[in-house]
């Protein structure tokens, strides 16, 4: 599903954020990308999601070489992913319902079908009763759950979360990880970047998960 072959990424006038990385992620995997700040976690996620292109090496997503994709094709590649950011990236001038509607509108899905899917996504993260609330009125944990609802509403095959629990206290963090594990259980590939492996990972998940530990842009054992 996702294949990195000797991938490096150098930002202009900077050091190598990622150095010669090779790995493979299969459908339905739960992958933790761990490492300290500046280790290259975010760059790795951006390369997977097509937000960045590698300087060298090959990134294959569903057998498509990201480096060879035309700029116009990149948005369509991104629609395969549900993205969750540490800072949520919610639209604060739109209510919860409208925030979750955005990916569907991008895909041209409107009306009853869209409403049904938005409410299902909000229900899944426990925010159905707050569909008309503005994001600013939600707690940090609720905002992140709203971001998850927006990420899953278009039923992506891959869910990518960049430090989704970074700003949350332990209870909220457990909640968020629980939602992400639930999606992995139904066949969605889940990739989570975090400083270190979360505690209390359910036992049945521990066997299915992969860990990519990054150190100074390189994979370490």
């Amino acid at each position: 599903m996702i294949k990195f072959d000797r991938v490096s990424k150098r930002y202009p006038g900077s050091f190598d954020a990622i150095k010669n990385i090779t790995f493979e992620i299969n459908q339905g995997d739960l992958v933790f990308v761990t490492g300290a700040s500046g280790a290259g976690k975010s760059t790795l996620l951006k390369l997977i999601a097509g937000l960045e292109r590698p300087t060298s090496g090959t990134v294959l997503i569903n057998n498509q070489n990201v480096s060879q994709l035309k700029a116009a094709a990149i948005p369509y590649l991104r629609r395969n992913f549900g993205l969750i950011f540490q800072d949520h990236k919610l639209l604060y001038n739109r209510n919860c319902f409208e925030n979750v509607a955005l990916p569907l509108h991008i895909n041209g899905i409107l009306g009853e079908e869209a409403a049904k899917r938005i409410r299902a996504a909000l229900d899944k993260v426990g925010l159905l009763s707050k569909e008309k609330s503005m994001p600013i009125t939600l707690s940090g944990g609720e905002q992140q759950r709203l971001a998850i609802a927006r990420a899953v509403v278009s039923r992506p095959a891959i869910l990518i979360a960049d430090e989704p629990t970074g700003n949350l206290d332990e209870n909220y963090a457990t909640d968020i990880l629980g939602f992400l594990y639930a999606f992995q259980q139904v066949g969605v590939t889940v990739i989570i970047a975090c400083h270190e492996l979360p505690q209390n990972i359910p036992e049945n998940m521990q066997n299915a998960m992969k860990v990519l530990h990054l150190q100074h842009g390189e994979l370490s054992a």
Binding site: F81, L91, N93, L102, I106
Partner: peptide, 16 residues
């Protein structure tokens, strides 16, 4: 601007 940036991140084309 924020809306445009988020939209582009989640797969909006320039036409959109």
């Amino acid at each position: 601007l924020e809306e445009i940036e988020v939209s582009k991140l989640i797969g909006a084309t320039n036409q959109f």
